[in-house]
Amino acid sequence: MIQTRALLEAREEAGSALSLRLRAPDLAAQLVPGQAVLIQTGWGYDPFLRRTFHPIAIDSESFAIRLAVDGDRGRAWLRLAQPGAELDCLGPVGKGFILPSRARRILCLGGGDAAWTLLPLVQRAAALGHAVTLATDALSKRQTIPAAMLPISVEYHIATIDGSAGRKGALSALLPELLPWADAVIAAADMDFYRQLGRAIEAARVLPPKGYAQALYQMNFLCGTGACQACAVDIAGGRRRVCLRGPVFDLVDILR
């Protein structure tokens, strides 16, 4: 983990939200999809806590974060930042997704805003020659990931709650047809979806083997080193610190 000042290079629209591209070669070189970056916001002591982001794009010299529209004053401060600003970043935090070397067909499942955090993994998996399917859900078409942001080889399925794009309904409705195809599953969503995913895998594959599905456990971190113990949750058979054991876990451990 390092602490560094990242240069805000560009602000871009990302669906209904804003994405910030941050140049920080030393940090970007260490980042693995699914890991977190903690960014200081505000000019003084308010907000005091750093904001937690899982980058939506990573290259050798920079990474991008997504700012959804919400009432958080730290993210509101970031939305006002202009190119040329320097942001204090701490990261990478925790363990990211591991591309299963023996898996050929990888199913990536993203629920709501968390789906965006799968983009760096989708890019890497496609570049390495894996067959990748990305399935996401969103409230409406406006919140979905534009297909143009995906490698051309990636198969893309969308479900929207209002039916404005793809299948009407939630992501879980797509699972029965997609799961039998997949050698490995990578997911970023909420706990409700992970429970549904666990049940769907059991139904499709008798029992979910350890290592078959990885899932991102999203939460806000304070220190990112395990010292503060703010992120301890009941997971993997005990009360454990997500910043050290996660934030990417085996789905079996999340549901245990």
């Binding site: 002591y45 308010d46 005091f48 806590l49 703010a230 992120c231 949750v233």
Partner: peptide, 16 residues
Amino acid sequence: AQPRLAEIPAGFLLET
């Protein structure tokens, strides 16, 4: 158990 952390102006509450 969670929640352990709450942010307040210029600080936080942390109960481990």
